[in-house]
Simulated assay, not measured.
Amino acid sequence: MGSRIGANIRRERGRRGWSQGRLAREICRGAGVMGEPVGRQEVSRWEQGKRTPRQWLPFIATALGVSVDVLQEPQRLDQPPLPTLSDFLPDGDPLAPLSAREGRRVGLGQVGDLQKRVHGLRLADDVLAGGDLVRPALRELRAAVRMYREGTHSGEVGRALLGQIGELAQIAGWIASDAGQHGDAERIYRLGISAAMQEDDRTLAGNLAGSLAYQLSNTGGEVEGVRLARAALDGVGPDAPPKARALYLDRVAWAHTKAGETQPAMRALGEAGEALAEDSAETESPAYLYWVDAGELKVMESRVYTEIHRPLRAVPLLRDVLSRYDTTHTRELALYLSWLAVALADANEPEEAAATAQRVIMLSGAVTSDRTAERVRVVRERLKGYGDVPEVRAVLDSAA
């Protein structure tokens, strides 16, 4: 019974786009009780079937706008519920405040300082690689979580801290992933999703979930990557800023591409372009989406075409992007050139592929990035089929 009710609660909560914390607050409000006798952890226990709500069931139903019967109905085994972002949260509650400890008072000034450091770390990632930034990024994240858990603060400050922890987790997770620390990156992303959902910031939660989906798709978790990328897009809802929807649709496209699902990938690319076209000076987007523009969508489009071996589409797109790319962004330049090298090889242009590959190898040697190292390996493997071409042989020999 408990697992059945829990699955139904999770399904209805997902339809509303609520976090577990939001549902807990709505239940308490509907029951007319003071304080928070029901919290996020209790909702989590119900949804996992560890506890049965019993006396809280009518208030849960009222909060969700359904009848008690709906929450008690059997699950149809042939139609499992779609995953929601709550399914990807970490076990337990790593952000639970340590209420028994009286820490120093935290105000909006400290939150503002943290916000500046987070943005500085994000800008540094544009020009430095994960191996250079992972230590300071993890130090900042640990300090921010400690500030939230051990400090005393108002509800407003607490919510602002959760937002900054979520943003910091996104960039720290990205940096850890670039450094090849995929296990750490996944834990960091899930921590950030938890913070964003406690703050009820669906756009930020979607950004974190999409980043994790991207890592999963690139590290052998293609099926889970599709599920999470889709959950991130569904969780953010139709009212998200156009830039956010465009980015999350791009990640859906990449997840389907890595899973070998070409048609869904192409549909998502088209929808991403349509979403970005809705962006204007009047629409407000979070500051962390500053880099999402038509050029970035073109990069993803060219990568998808490369992965599905359509070089006549990929090569012109990549050349156009690279002709205008900021050469101070060494890691990204190496990554984009790596896809161009593969696309040129697919187009039966081994000499040009070899020259491009040589640039990839040289640029990769200048950055401590696991992503570029992996792409060098991919490019070398692709060029081996042209080992009898002198230009290619020279590149392979020098790389060895």
Rank of each mutant, 00 (worst) to 15 (best):
V379T: 07
P242S: 09
I175H: 07
Y248T: 12
G32K: 09
V134F: 10
L162K: 09
L208E: 07
P350S: 10
R319V: 00
R267Q: 14
G65P: 10
S19R: 01
D250G: 11
Q358L: 08
A394G: 01
R187C: 04
R13L: 05
R227P: 05
T219H: 14
L212T: 10
D234I: 13
I188A: 05
N207P: 08
A196W: 04
A275T: 08
M362I: 08
A169T: 03
A7T: 15
D87M: 04
S177E: 12
K258G: 07
V157M: 02
I361T: 07
G270N: 06
R251W: 12
H153Y: 09
S280Q: 05
E332W: 02
D200G: 12
I308F: 05
S3Q: 13
D126N: 06
I171Y: 05
V134I: 12
A144C: 06
D78M: 10
M147R: 04
G35I: 06
E73T: 14
A31K: 14
L191K: 02
L77N: 09
Q20R: 15
S19I: 00
V157K: 02
R359Q: 14
A229T: 04
S369V: 08
L82P: 08
G49S: 10
E301T: 15
R187N: 14
L128D: 11
T328H: 04
G192T: 05
R51C: 12
R202Y: 06
R10C: 06
V66R: 06
A354E: 05
I60C: 04
G192K: 03
E186W: 03
D126C: 02
A137H: 03
